[in-house]
Design a protein around this nucleic acid. Structure first.
Length: 273
DNA sequence: CGGTGGACCTGCTGGC
DNA sequence: TGCCAGCAGGTCCACC
């Protein structure tokens, strides 16, 4: 489900709802997501007040007034939403925080690839989950020059390269295909054969694709929603992802699918070289 | 050393 | 209708 745009959309939608709220209660229902949940650390957040919401990579960061940050990763199937008090516990509701009016902030994640970590707010960047991460694609530290530099001495296809969080964070399987279509670059192209000017085009395409997806509320393929349960609509704007066999909107070719590093890539061989 | 394949999990869809 | 294979938005790690 969630790549950078989806996490950003969840963050923005939860912000007005959570800022200044206190966690009146904490319920931990699952022993583990990707990692075992730290039940004592999570339950110790009872009474803490939300001071800020941030995003780093695909992690949603909830800064609390006890010098702790709740870091939530949605994995493939996670949903982090506020629901009414009357809403019954969902089948895969692994974690929930009671709020002042009786509603609750809950993490539902059927596949359990997500994470919920309690980390010290100060120095969170040096935590093992964050230390290796590359630049934010929508930040000032990301550019064609950075991509060109990181590609030096590397081999392999550009699509896999863009999905490497050490290179740039937040670009997952959907937006890697979409950005490469926008840039007119084949997902099969070796990073060793990309010119400096093309790296600039790729960096720009990544930025534009992600920014547009955020603007359109993220991509809802199956069940993604923001923090209030609203679906996104970028799926309507997808040019190639999930469109194998359909006509390319830009030339007379048809969209093809191939598998790279065990993931489906979608592209148009007519306009992507 | 870097890149790929498999593993982790549940649920849905399509073919027989 | 049932069963099974294949696939799904992420990430880590063993193995070439």
């Amino acid at each position: 489900m969630p790549e950078l745009p989806e996490v950003e959309v969840v963050k923005m939608s939860l912000e007005p709802r959570l800022l200044g709220e206190r966690f009146r209660s904490v319920s931990v229902h699952a022993p583990a997501l990707r990692e075992p949940l730290d039940r004592p650390a999570l339950t110790a957040l009872q009474g803490a007040k939300v001071e800020a919401l941030r995003r780093r990579s695909k992690y949603l960061l909830v800064d609390l007034d006890v010098e702790k940050t709740l870091a939530v990763h949605l994995g493939m199937s996670g949903r982090f939403t506020v629901v009414e008090p009357s809403e019954p516990r969902a089948k895969h509701e692994h974690l929930a925080f009671g709020l002042g009016d009786g509603s609750r902030l809950r993490l539902v994640d059927p596949r359990r690839f997500g994470q919920a970590l309690v980390l010290p707010t100060r120095g969170i960047e040096s935590d093992r989950h964050f230390a290796h991460l590359g630049p934010e694609p929508l930040g000032a530290d990301f550019s064609g020059a950075v991509l060109a530099h990181k590609a030096e001495g590397r081999r392999g296809p550009i699509k896999t390269f863009l999905m490497d969080a050490r290179v740039v964070v937040g670009v997952g399987n959907i937006y890697a295909s979409e950005a490469l279509f926008r840039a007119g670059v084949s997902p099969k192209r070796s990073v060793a054969r990309v010119s400096r000017a093309t790296w600039d085009r790729v960096a720009e395409a990544v930025r534009e694709t992600l920014a547009q997806a955020i603007h359109e509320g993220g991509t809802t393929l199956n069940d993604f929603t923001d923090g209030e349960g609203n679906a996104g609509y970028f799926q309507v704007s997808l040019a190639v992802y999930g469109r194998e066999g359909e006509a390319c909107g830009r030339c007379d070719d048809r969209v093809r699918r191939l598998v790279q590093a065990n993931r489906s890539s979608y592209y148009c061989s007519g306009c992507q070289r």
